[in-house]
Write a protein that binds this DNA or RNA. Structure first.
Lengths: 253, 253
DNA sequence: ACAGTATTTATCCAACGGGTTAATTTCTCG
DNA sequence: CGAGAAATTAACCCGTTGGATAAATACTGT
């Protein structure tokens, strides 16, 4: 498996200059950037699947189709590798957030979009949730050392502050809620549901990750937050959920 | 330290029969129940501080003032120890929940009390949060094996269902929200804030665990949920937060 | 083409860590 | 009081794991 993925590498990364002049079949090929990327990707999977202490350096190497030595050569030791993965994860979500462009929507729609984005991002990137959990179990010990992440200081909060202010001015929102509180609440509603779905599913005896459950959750979250902000009924916002299903929820055991 | 706690044990757990007839100073004393309790307590600390993989059996033994062999003698191997701790944690919160007695409060007050209880329980028992995080990182692998926890099937959900129904009947609440969704949301708002406070504090550059921040968070959560349920303004419910502080929040950078 | 450097492979190892075995000490009950 | 059971200590075992060292191979500029 490891060997085969290594050969795959040789095929996929061969340069344009690689005509048919390959006399002796090379044992391996240089590709520092690609190697680094594959290492970080493999490390992301390993760390999110097993946590920091549970992650195995050898497994990361194997998954990356690399020799273990490569990790130390290209990134550093286990902790440095972990921090690099963490920084990459933050970098990714921040950059996607930047594209959200809430300024041009009317306030309630902006909040709805923010909730939906957060929910979908967490759904699409479960490793991100795991990495955050892992880092919080370590009380952010590594993140505190990071110079990069501190400078990322979310301009996102400013986006939300603006939306809230606009909402208050237009009369859509009833309170000038603290944007950080709001952001944390929105993240919390999605994050907890997804990151704790395993134990919650056991406890409540229902699969929280099937299609229907996920649809209902999104509708619930949007309804909860928008109802609180606008003072209107939750039911008004749950357009994603058909009336039939809404009734059945009340009866669910 | 380890040795001293061991001697402490001998002093504190000596039976009533222990007159002053101790001729030869005993090297140690039998105390199976006490030993088991100390092991589980030490294990709880260790697992919550370091996760499953990061926990060290030797450290648990040391913290319990015991010989490593005792863990295996009284509980079992590392995994069994972990499961025992987890079951104990669920047992504890469930039993406290049972005393909440929401039935005799009017619906909005019942919800407020539920939120406050959850928040305070999480604050008082940070190990519980860590254990749940750890178990979810393991995708509830251990919890699924537990026969005990499955039978605990929360009668709590029924309590909430009743409160919601009463609230709808009385006109206090506008929607018959799914009690499981509501419970998850209430837990989420507290859980995420506290379990992720380490990384969030770094990112937002403010200490989320100081007194003022905690007070504001509780007020925010109560306001959010009750406003959504009743359709009234969030501001009405934030009685814990003085007006001055509320204004300053809006300005906070 | 070739010398020097960058990248990768192949081994090795010392510490660690979960778990076990065997000996010791304390308690209980006839 | 003394023998057998229960509880505890002490010492050891051995696979694992993060990390290091050294040798081999591929590329680059001249």
């Amino acid at each position: 498996m490891t060997a085969s993925s290594c050969y795959t590498l040789i095929q996929t990364t061969q340069r344009a200059s690689g005509l048919a002049k390959a006399k002796r079949p090379l044992k391996w090929q240089r590709d520092p950037e690609g190697m680094r990327l594959r290492i970080l990707e493999a490390a992301k999977q390993e760390f999110s699947a097993h946590g920091l202490a549970g992650a195995r350096v050898d497994r990361i190497a194997a998954k990356a189709g690399a020799n273990k030595r490569m990790l130390y050569y290209h990134v550093g030791n286990k902790d440095e590798l972990y921090l690099a993965v963490l920084e990459g994860a933050y970098d990714k979500i921040r950059s996607e957030e930047r594209g959200l462009d809430l300024e041009h929507l009317d306030p309630p729609e902006a909040i709805r979009r923010l909730i939906e984005f957060t929910w979908n991002y967490f759904l699409r990137n479960p490793e991100f949730l795991s990495l955050l959990q892992t880092e919080n179990l370590a009380r952010a010990k590594h993140l505190k050392k990071s110079t990069k992440v501190k400078s990322m200081h979310s301009p996102f909060v400013e986006m939300i502050r603006t939306v809230v202010r606009r909402g208050v001015d237009s009369g859509d929102f009833q309170v000038a809620v603290d944007p950080v509180q709001l952001y944390i609440s929105i993240a919390a509603l999605s994050f907890f549901y997804l990151s704790n779905s395993a134990t919650l599913s056991v406890i409540f005896g229902r699969d929280l990750l099937d299609k229907k459950a996920k649809d209902e959750r999104l509708a619930h979250m949007v309804g909860l937050v928008l109802a609180a902000l606008t003072g209107q009924s939750m039911a008004l916002f749950e357009i994603a959920k058909p009336a039939q299903s809404r009734a059945s929820v009340v009866q669910t055991a």
